[in-house]
C-alpha cells in the first residue's frame, strides 16, 4: 500500500523546512452520515518527525484537525540527503511511518 504520508523537507543550508500531507479521514465523532448516524471518531492523535534519532516536531491532534491534514514547520540543521522519519498513530491504534530524504 502506498504510504499515507507525503513529506517534503527542503534544506537551505541553515534550516530545514518540512511540509507534510497525510491521507486520513480525521473524523471528529460529531458528524452524521447520510443516514443520520454518527460517524465514530477516527483521527490521528500523535504525529512525530524525527531527525538524527531525535524528535524535531511532535503534533498532538484532536478531531478538529481537517481531513487529510497538512502541517508545516522548520527546524535548524538538517543536511541534504539526510533522513527525516515521519510516523503517526491514530485513536484506533493504526500507524504509518515513512522516511523522507531532505532535499
Amino acid at each position: 500500500m502506498a504510504s499515507s504520508i507525503r513529506v517534503r523537507a527542503t534544506s537551505n543550508g541553515d534550516t530545514t523546512e518540512v511540509q507534510a500531507l497525510i491521507q486520513h479521514p480525521m473524523d471528529s465523532g460529531f458528524v452524521k452520515d447520510a443516514k443520520g448516524e454518527i460517524i465514530p471518531p477516527h483521527f490521528i492523535q500523535v504525529l512525530t518527525f524525527e531527525y538524527d534519532g531525535k524528535p524535531v516536531f511532535v503534533a498532538d491532534w484532536g478531531g478538529g484537525v481537517s481531513k487529510d491534514p497538512y502541517v508545516k514547520f522548520a527546524f535548524k540543521g538538517g543536511k541534504k540527503g539526510d533522513d527525516l522519519k515521519v510516523s503517526w498513530v491514530d485513536n484506533k491504534g493504526a500507524t504509518d511511518t515513512t522516511t523522507a530524504k531532505i532535499q
Partner: peptide, 19 residues
C-alpha cells in the same frame, strides 16, 4: 484542535488546517 511540541532547535512557527 492541536498542540505542537517544539523541541530546542525547531523554529516557533507552525501552519496547519483546522475545522
Amino acid at each position: 484542535i492541536a498542540s505542537y511540541k517544539i523541541p530546542a532547535g525547531t523554529l516557533p512557527s507552525v501552519a496547519n488546517r483546522i475545522k
